[in-house]
Each structure stands twice: as structure tokens, then as C-alpha cells.
């Protein structure tokens, strides 16, 4: 569904991705793991077109999106849950969800679609229903992550990208969120999951990529990567403990 073909990408001052290629097949979860600064977020933001791509191509459904604007990528249904959640703190939970729905809001059947998305999302996270009028910034970290994921799901994404959804959350909440991701996959959603918690992320994933300083160091079935002892030492070592 999404295909990254040999891209070089980065920030004006530095190159953060060197010849990275990556494939996300429809209906699967692909996990990208690696240490701090490996370039995981840069991949997500390159797809969202927030980061300059100097060469290579990114295709979605075969269509080249490399020169698109960020809003056009969202329009296609490629939606991200950003690192650190980035909910809108002074706005209510409901307003956050409405903003997520922006992609579909202009359509003819918007009212019906809104109801449909809303009941899907509150089916996944029932507590949101009671918190609609609460300012999102006053919620706990775990609840804020639920708002961030729900907000993205309101857009009815075709590809959902999550950048370290476990960041700063208790293990129990992380498990909960990973369960939800498995549920989303069984509902047919395609997912790109970026994580430092390599073990859990690779266990959940169909396919995995191990990043190290701007390059793909290994790729394969999630389970194979997870159990590969050389990888655990060289690239995942630091995370295996955490």
C-alpha cells in the first residue's frame, strides 16, 4: 500500500535518512524500531511530507506522493499520531475529535460519517464518551494518547502511522494500546508503528524494520527480528532491557 523507494531525507543542516526503503502491505502492521536518533520519526514525517526528501520516491497506492503538500497526504487517508501525542490541550475532547474529522467534514454525507466514526472510536475507548466536554490537556497521559489515536481514527485513515505511542506511559496502558492496534488490524486497517519498545512492537508486527543512524539495518518478519540474537545486541540491546 505504501512504498518508500530509496529515499534520502533530512533537515536543512543534516541528512537523517540515507537510502531508506520500506514497504507497508495493506492490512498489516509494520513496526520500525531503533535507538534514539535512528531516524524513525523522520520516516513518519517524510511520509507526512513535513520533512524534505532529497531523492528517491514515496508512493501510496502506486501514486507518487513525494512532492505533495502535507494536507494532500492527509486527504489521501495517510494520517499520523505524532510523537508526544500533540493533542490540542485547551480544546475539549470533542473538539479534538472534530478536528480529526476534518478530512471528511466537507463531504456530502459528513453528518452520517461523523456519527459512524464517533461510535467506532468510542467503542474502542468508551471513557471518551464521558469526557467529551473535558479539556484534553487536563487528561492523564494515557487518556491523552487515547484522544490522539481517536482523533486520527476520526479521519477514517487508510494508513495509520503512530510515532511512539508508548512514550511515557505505564506498561499496563501500553499493553492496552497495543491490544487496540491489533484490533484495528483485524478490522482491516494498515498500520505503521514506530517504537522504542522493540520487543512488544515486533511481537505485534507482521513485518519489522530495525533502524540505526539513518539506515535500515535489518528487516524481516517481526517475530524473526525479535528473536535474532545479533540484532538484540547491536541495535536493540539498549531497548531490550527497557
Amino acid at each position: 500500500m505504501l512504498n518508500i523507494d530509496n529515499i534520502v531525507a533530512g533537515y536543512n543542516t543534516s541528512v537523517a535518512l540515507e537510502n531508506v526503503s520500506l514497504d507497508i502491505p495493506e492490512g498489516k502492521i509494520v513496526s520500525v524500531v531503533g535507538a534514539n536518533g535512528a531516524g524513525k520519526s523522520t520516516i513518519v514525517n517524510a511520509i507526512s511530507r513535513l520533512v524534505s526528501v532529497y531523492s528517491g520516491a514515496i508512493r501510496f497506492d502506486g501514486k507518487d506522493i513525494t512532492s505533495m503538500r502535507p494536507t494532500q497526504v492527509v486527504e489521501l487517508g495517510v494520517v499520523q499520531v505524532p510523537e508526544g501525542r500533540d493533542i490540542f490541550p485547551p480544546l475539549t475532547v470533542e473538539e479534538n475529535l472534530r478536528l480529526g474529522f476534518h478530512r471528511l467534514a466537507g463531504r456530502k454525507d459528513a453528518a452520517r460519517r461523523y456519527e459512524e466514526r464517533f461510535s467506532y472510536v468510542t467503542g474502542l475507548f468508551p471513557i471518551l464518551r464521558e469526557r467529551l466536554k473535558q479539556r484534553a490537556g487536563t487528561m492523564s497521559g494515557g487518556e491523552q494518547q487515547m484522544v490522539a489515536i481517536s482523533r486520527a481514527l476520526m479521519a477514517d485513515p487508510r494508513l495509520l502511522m503512530l510515532d511512539e505511542p508508548s512514550l511515557g506511559l505505564a506498561p499496563m496502558i501500553v499493553d492496552q494500546i497495543f491490544d487496540i492496534l491489533a484490533r484495528l488490524r483485524s478490522d482491516g486497517l494498515t498500520i505503521l508503528l514506530v517504537e522504542q519498545h522493540a520487543d512488544e512492537a515486533l511481537k505485534l508486527a507482521d513485518y519489522g524494520y530495525v533502524m540505526g543512524t539513518g539506515k535500515v539495518r535489518a528487516k524481516g518478519r517481526g517475530e524473526d527480528l525479535r528473536t535474532d540474537p545479533t540484532l538484540a545486541q547491536s541495535y536493540l540491546g539498549r531497548m531490550a532491557e527497557g
Binding site: T71, E75, V79, D86, L99, H102, R103, R151, A155
Partner: peptide
């Protein structure tokens, strides 16, 4: 930036 990620220009 986050607004942009919602598709808002």
C-alpha cells in the same frame, strides 16, 4: 503543525 496533520492549511 498539528493542525496541518489534521489536513488544515
Amino acid at each position: 503543525r498539528t493542525a496541518l496533520l489534521m489536513g488544515i492549511r
